Simulated scan of single mutants.
Amino acid sequence: MAKAEIDTSPQHCSVCLDTIQDEKTLKCLHSFCSQCIESVFRVKPACPICNTYHGVYTGTQPEGTMTVTRNWQCLPGYEHCGCMIILYSFPAGTQGPEHPNPGARYNGTSRTAYLPACEEGEKVVNLLRKAFDRRLVFTIGQSATTGLNNVITWNDIHHKTNMKGGPQCFGYPDPEYLSRVQEELRIKGVTEDDE
């Protein structure tokens, strides 16, 4: 039986694809050139290999408010509890340097979303609040539904904007929704464990 060989070759940085210089190892145990990972973190503080966040990611959402109210109405699939109604409101404004067209105007808007008032729904609403405070729920760009530019749009964290109609109508029932949205939030660095 042959002895197992130990790899003693130098590691390569997955950013510059060269031999690692001034090695920096992240908490996820992936290693990079110190200068390479610093340049990646200026754009997004996440490991380029596994997408684990290192620090807090802040988005480009414009100024607005998130209000949560509770209602006795039940959502299909959650007949044992009431629901939470989330109202997002944004006034009209001018795009800042972090937006696609600095100095251009955008119109105000509001959006309504629904969550079941169960234990997992409460967890999700708290994560959504954290994401909203980090400016991650909305952004300014091109609307996928209207094609208009310079408008406030959702930013890849899906919401249920109807109480009924199932997934095809952005409503309930949708038994996998709460776990899917938690995964979308995790990808943006929003978990119960982070600050």
Rank of each mutant, 00 (worst) to 15 (best):
residue 156 D to T: 04
residue 162 N to C: 09
residue 193 D to R: 15
residue 190 V to G: 06
residue 181 V to W: 04
residue 167 P to V: 05
residue 178 L to D: 09
residue 178 L to E: 09
residue 142 Q to C: 09
residue 152 I to A: 14
residue 181 V to H: 07
residue 150 N to E: 12
residue 166 G to N: 15
residue 154 W to Q: 08
residue 183 E to I: 05
residue 163 M to N: 03
residue 189 G to E: 06
residue 177 Y to T: 00
residue 193 D to S: 14
residue 160 K to T: 01
residue 174 D to W: 15
residue 142 Q to A: 10
residue 185 L to E: 03
residue 172 Y to K: 07
residue 180 R to D: 10
residue 173 P to M: 09
residue 182 Q to S: 02
residue 142 Q to I: 07
residue 173 P to G: 06
residue 172 Y to T: 03
residue 161 T to K: 07
residue 183 E to H: 08
residue 190 V to S: 07
residue 160 K to G: 06
residue 190 V to A: 07
residue 185 L to P: 01
residue 181 V to F: 06
residue 159 H to C: 01
residue 192 E to Y: 01
residue 148 L to Q: 15
residue 177 Y to P: 01
residue 159 H to T: 03
residue 172 Y to P: 02
residue 169 C to H: 14
residue 142 Q to S: 12
residue 186 R to V: 00
residue 179 S to A: 13
residue 152 I to K: 15
residue 171 G to M: 13
residue 163 M to W: 05
residue 175 P to C: 08
residue 186 R to G: 00
residue 157 I to H: 11
residue 186 R to I: 00
residue 191 T to C: 06
residue 172 Y to F: 14
residue 190 V to T: 02
residue 152 I to V: 14
residue 163 M to G: 02
residue 177 Y to I: 01
residue 180 R to G: 01
residue 190 V to P: 07
residue 148 L to D: 15
residue 161 T to W: 10
residue 152 I to Y: 13
residue 155 N to R: 15
residue 146 T to C: 05
residue 174 D to G: 06
residue 161 T to E: 02
residue 194 D to G: 10
residue 190 V to K: 12
residue 148 L to C: 11
residue 178 L to I: 02
residue 157 I to E: 11
residue 188 K to G: 02
residue 155 N to V: 03
residue 146 T to W: 01
residue 159 H to M: 09
residue 179 S to C: 05
residue 180 R to Q: 11
residue 182 Q to A: 01
residue 164 K to I: 01
residue 162 N to I: 00
residue 181 V to Y: 08
residue 159 H to R: 10
residue 155 N to Y: 07
residue 152 I to R: 15
residue 149 N to I: 02
residue 183 E to G: 02
residue 164 K to T: 03
residue 184 E to L: 09
residue 165 G to P: 02
residue 147 G to W: 00
residue 144 A to F: 11
residue 186 R to D: 01
residue 188 K to S: 07
residue 188 K to L: 04
residue 169 C to V: 05
residue 181 V to E: 10
residue 142 Q to K: 04
residue 194 D to I: 04
residue 149 N to K: 14
residue 150 N to Q: 14
residue 145 T to W: 07
residue 165 G to E: 13
residue 159 H to E: 10
residue 181 V to T: 06
residue 169 C to F: 11
residue 174 D to R: 14
residue 154 W to P: 00
residue 142 Q to M: 11
residue 181 V to N: 11
residue 192 E to F: 00
residue 148 L to K: 15
residue 187 I to F: 10
residue 153 T to A: 06
residue 182 Q to W: 00
residue 160 K to S: 05
residue 156 D to W: 08
residue 153 T to N: 07
residue 181 V to R: 13
residue 152 I to F: 10
residue 162 N to R: 13
residue 169 C to L: 12
residue 148 L to N: 15
residue 145 T to I: 01
residue 167 P to W: 14
residue 191 T to R: 14
residue 171 G to T: 07
residue 151 V to K: 12
residue 165 G to C: 04
residue 171 G to W: 12
residue 158 H to R: 13
residue 158 H to E: 13
residue 176 E to F: 11
residue 178 L to K: 08
residue 171 G to F: 13
residue 148 L to P: 03
residue 186 R to K: 13
residue 172 Y to W: 12
residue 162 N to M: 08
residue 193 D to P: 00
residue 162 N to W: 10
residue 185 L to Y: 03
residue 148 L to V: 04
residue 143 S to A: 12
residue 189 G to H: 11
residue 152 I to Q: 15
residue 172 Y to E: 09
residue 145 T to M: 05
residue 151 V to R: 09
residue 184 E to Y: 08
residue 158 H to Q: 09
